[in-house]
Design a protein around this nucleic acid. Structure first.
Length: 572
RNA sequence: GGGGCACUAGCUCAACGGAUAGAGUAUCAGACUUCGAAUCUGCUGGUUCCGGGUUCGAGUCCCGGGUGCCUCGCCA
């Protein structure tokens, strides 16, 4: 497909001495207001170079390039050159391309099969999977899809929080107050109650803390009794998590969590010592990072057991050795910014050049209306409940509109739309923003929401069904673009054209919300097109062209939803 | 106290350093015998937290201040 910005830069470059083509390329804009053209070139910066007033420069450039067949019109407006591209040719080119590529539209080869590791979700075993966990889970899953789409080989890792002193606490609690059957019946709830109980009791009897630390040390040393209990807790917890992953349709290539690295850490502790990076402070081993303006990073505790950062060092080296990643992405809350800064700094100090290929992708905090979530205080909203709530509401809406629908179909669509609504909502805003969870907000299905976009897709499918296979086949074979040059059609075409760039940008910025916003724009533009014009007209040539447009819009929306880990039902 | 992030319409949020700061939502007024009303059209809504600076031009970049959140040696 023709790259319009590049072409425009080629045209303008010879008109402007003293500015590189690349600089000109950067200056070309896409005006928000279509009255100012499809592309615009501001001439302010040229005033100094050319020693002329910007409007005069704009006029000169406009006159020099206006005869190119790419343009319908070029007009100088004050300091701007406003360019209107030839709508017919543009529509022919873009819609043909999107229809032809269909499910592949927006894909790219720039990844060239290079491996990219994405770590996401990574919940703590034996703790409830709450609404806060949706962030890493869904943002990470979407980033993984986007990199897949861009031609990278993606390795998805769930770095389970299945290790640490907390398991010492849980084992201690289980031994003192636990019951085997309770754990089997309701693993997360029961294990959580042990954790809570432990903290209550530890306030009265601080020696429990020491017992827990000692127990974890035994676990780390591979003592059979502790290991067996831990394994059992882990298995039961994972069963519950998988229920949520199944609902979200999220998969992993590896569940190697913190425990996986338990035997891989001594090597790095030794390495840190040998490289003279480690210091001993009353039995605690740490790396000083003063010269990088960071607080010291603790590597091992005074009892010799490891800490979070030690495991992350081991994990990253393991990933480099196992996958030889081009990029190693961590989708982890912004609360851990300091931890990741320290970790990456230590990797660099150890001399690992690939440290610069590691990226922390942070995101903001989810809180509840009555404050920060606290599993210990029971102030928590379970993700599974939110997903089920959204499915329930969707089912109600479907049955209201269509009481005689096939129950099996209803269930399938209710899941696609309800869960999609929650996912879409999560991926709507910049990930760095904090937000307060609200049932009202997540169950709103009107306006800029997942159901709105899915509805638009279903509507497009419906039109295609009504058009009939014949017309659809003709539209795929070719069409007369002069029928799809109206203002609303052109606005839609421009958005379809931008889609591949949007995917690329979302990947570069690790920001799925860019895709989310763009498919909302496409849906809005499609709905406007739909209302402004009659698609299935009596004039067959016109109908074929407009059906081609519908096919293209449908493909772009579908692909966008796919990148957000959402389904695109044909009916709803 | 040190470091980081955020602050834009009543609410939730957009805006490659560019033209009159835009959507959704809420309120109100309209549009289904016509391709799907989970839709669309229209009205209302702004000291972009405050103060300086940089420049042709600042919501955007720099400095200072305010407010909120996160974080700072044995949790992850």
């Amino acid at each position: 497909m023709l790259n319009y910005v590049e072409k425009i830069a080629d045209l303008i470059a010879p008109q402007v001495e003293g500015l590189e083509r690349e600089e000109i390329l950067d200056m070309i804009e896409r005006p928000a207001d279509s009255k100012m053209g499809d592309y615009a070139f501001p001439c302010f910066k040229l005033a100094r170079v050319l020693r002329k007033a910007p409007p005069i420069i704009a006029k000169g450039i406009a006159e020099a390039i206006q005869d190119d067949p790419m343009f319908e019109q070029v007009q100088p407006v004050n300091a701007y050159v406003n360019m209107f591209i030839s709508k017919e040719e543009f529509a022919r080119e873009v819609v043909t391309e999107v229809v032809a590529k269909d499910e592949d539209y927006g894909k790219s080869e720039i990844g060239a099969g290079r491996p990219v590791v994405v770590e996401y979700s990574s919940p703590n075993i034996a703790k409830p999977f709450h609404i806060g966990h949706i962030r890493s889970t869904v943002i990470g899953a979407s980033i993984a899809k986007i990199y897949d789409f861009l031609g990278f080989k993606v390795i998805r890792i769930n770095h389970l929080g299945d290790y640490g002193t907390q398991f010492g606490k849980m084992i201690v609690a289980y031994r003192h107050w636990g019951n085997r059957q309770d754990v089997i019946d309701e693993p997360i709830k029961t294990l959580l109650s042990y954790y809570t109980k432990f903290h209550e009791e530890a306030e009265k009897d601080p020696s429990l803390e020491d017992e827990a630390r000692a127990t974890f040390t035994k676990l780390e040393n591979g003592e059979p009794e502790e290991t067996e209990l831990w394994q059992w807790f882990r298995d039961e917890s994972l069963k519950e998590f998988n229920r949520v992953y199944d609902m979200l349709d999220i998969t992993y290539d590896s569940y190697a969590g913190e425990s996986f690295y338990s035997d891989k850490m001594p090597r790095f502790i030794k390495e840190l010592e040998e490289k003279g990076l480690m210091e001993d402070d009353e039995g605690v081993k740490l790396v000083r990072l003063d010269e990088y303006n960071l607080p010291p990073a603790l590597i091992t505790k005074s009892d010799g057991s490891t800490l979070y950062i030690t495991r992350d060092i081991a994990a990253s080296v393991y990933r480099k050795e196992t996958y030889d990643f081009y990029k190693n992405i961590y989708v982890v809350a912004s609360q851990q910014n300091l931890h990741f800064q320290q970790w990456i700094q230590i990797l660099e100090m150890m001399g690992y050049e690939w440290a610069r290929d590691c990226v922390h992708v942070p995101f903001g905090l989810v809180s509840l209306e009555d404050g920060t979530m606290s599993t210990r205080e029971g102030r928590v909203v379970f993700l599974e409940d939110v997903l089920n709530g959204a499915v329930d509401k969707t089912r109600e809406i479907i049955l209201e509109k269509n009481p005689d629908a096939d129950p099996e179909k209803v269930e399938e669509i209710a899941k696609a739309v309800g869960i999609g609504a929650v996912v879409f909502n999560e991926l709507s805003n910049y990930r760095i923003k904090d937000y307060v969870f609200s049932w009202e907000h997540v169950l709103n299905f009107e306006g800029e929401t997942g159901p709105y976009v899915q509805y638009t897709h279903a509507r497009a499918c419906s039109i295609l069904r009504n058009a009939g296979d014949d017309i659809v086949a003709k539209a795929k074979a070719g069409f007369d673009p002069s029928y799809i040059t109206s203002e609303s059609a052109h606005a839609l075409t421009k958005l379809l054209y931008a889609f591949p760039d949007v995917v690329l940008e979302a990947g570069e910025k690790y920001e799925p919300s860019i895709v989310t916003r763009h498919i909302v724009d496409i849906a809005q533009a499609f709905n406007k097109f739909y209302h402004d014009e009659h698609i299935l007209t009596d004039n067959e040539d016109e109908k074929v062209a407009k059906v081609a447009m519908v096919l293209a819009a449908k493909a772009a929306i579908r692909n966008g939803l796919e990148l957000l880990c959402m389904k695109a039902p044909e009916k709803m």
